[in-house]
Design a protein around this nucleic acid. Structure first.
Length: 321
DNA sequence: AGAATAATAT
DNA sequence: CATATTATTC
């Protein structure tokens, strides 16, 4: 029997920004629209290499109420039917320009860069798995994911990278020889994110069919009504807050002193705290090729999070109620 | 839709 | 300044 990594459990509780990070909003110095209108965001802070920004989000996940639903593996929805109609979560709260402050200026504003958290990526993979490689196109994936605020380009971009990753994996597992370790530093970096989500078997084996019984994507509509505490939207909202904070750090630069073409002289350190999960206990040691297959980073992550952290939430909203 | 390239963030 | 990640463009 090979359970393989087929039974990955749904875990969306991994790491979610503590409410403290999202709640505190005291940036009313500059209106988001105004700042954004000037196209001032992160002006690339000091070129000094070596910034002291450590993640402090290692505290116990304070989340315990309305989690995201979604994980997979639970076993449901064995019907890989195309997304006939996700839900109304599409742009339900896609007001990225709102967040918590002024939720009015939803125009001419540029969205902040989307951060692909492991959770989000997980959902992405689930979607692709259920759609099948052929049907897994940006538009479809996006629809299936039902993540508000997520655009087709977001998915397309991520999909592009993901495919590269898969290709890399194929080469490694097929050509063999390598111990499953990344070849380049760049690969290692990208692998890290992708390793957070299990890669369906048939992904690497063109032609191979998904194991019967293996079901992917027990998708559940994200954001229900107002319990959308944390979701991609929240992430985006959080980003906005951060963004605003950064701008605010600019000490209220002359809102109107920005001539076209000219820009403020920004030279400060900006801090952004993505909801990245704390680095595992670093378990994998090197010393030679041990096994060439799917990176076992996942295991590391699982162990670390399951052991060090805690996973208790495996349930999700009923979805359609 | 997909790949290449640009921009931006860390 | 280099690298990584996401956005835009072709």
């Amino acid at each position: 029997m090979r359970e393989d990594e087929a039974n990955w459990f749904p875990r969306w509780e991994e790491d979610l920004p503590s409410p403290e990070e999202l709640m505190p909003l005291s940036q009313t110095l500059i209106t988001p629209d105004l700042a954004l209108a000037f196209d001032i965001r992160n002006p690339n802070s000091s070129p000094q290499h070596q910034q002291q920004q450590q993640q402090q989000i290692q505290s116990p996940i304070p989340i315990s109420s309305g989690q995201l639903g979604g994980g997979g593996g639970g076993g449901s929805i064995p019907s890989p039917s195309p997304p006939s109609q996700p839900h109304s979560s599409e742009f339900d709260s896609a007001e990225l320009g709102s967040g918590n402050l002024g939720d009015e200026p939803a125009r001419t504003l540029k969205r902040p860069r989307l951060v692909w958290t492991p959770q989000l990526h997980k959902r992405f993979v689930d979607a692709v798995a259920h759609l099948g490689i052929k049907n897994a196109v940006p538009k479809t994936i996006m629809q299936l994911m039902s993540v508000d605020g997520l655009t087709r380009e977001n998915v397309a971009s991520h999909l592009q990278k993901y495919r590269l990753y898969l290709k890399r994996m194929q080469g490694l597992s097929a050509g063999g020889g390598n111990g499953g370790g990344p070849l380049s530093a760049a690969d290692a970096a990208t692998d890290h994110l992708f390793a957070s989500a299990p890669v369906p078997h048939h992904f690497l084996h063109p032609g191979a069919r998904p194991a019967p019984g293996d079901h992917y994507l027990p998708f559940v509509p994200v954001l229900h009504h107002q319990q959308q505490q944390m979701a991609a939207a929240a992430v985006l909202a959080a980003q906005q807050q951060q963004q605003q904070q950064q701008q605010y750090h600019q000490r209220q630069v002359g809102q109107f002193g920005s001539p076209p073409g000219g820009q403020f002289e920004h030279g400060f350190l900006a801090r952004q705290l993505p909801a990245q999960q704390p680095p595992p206990q670093q378990v994998h040691r090197m010393g030679g090729p041990v096994n060439a297959q799917i990176p076992n980073y996942v295991e590391d992550l699982e162990s670390a999070t399951a052991g060090g952290g805690r996973k208790v939430l495996t349930l999700f909203p009923t979805g359609y109620d």
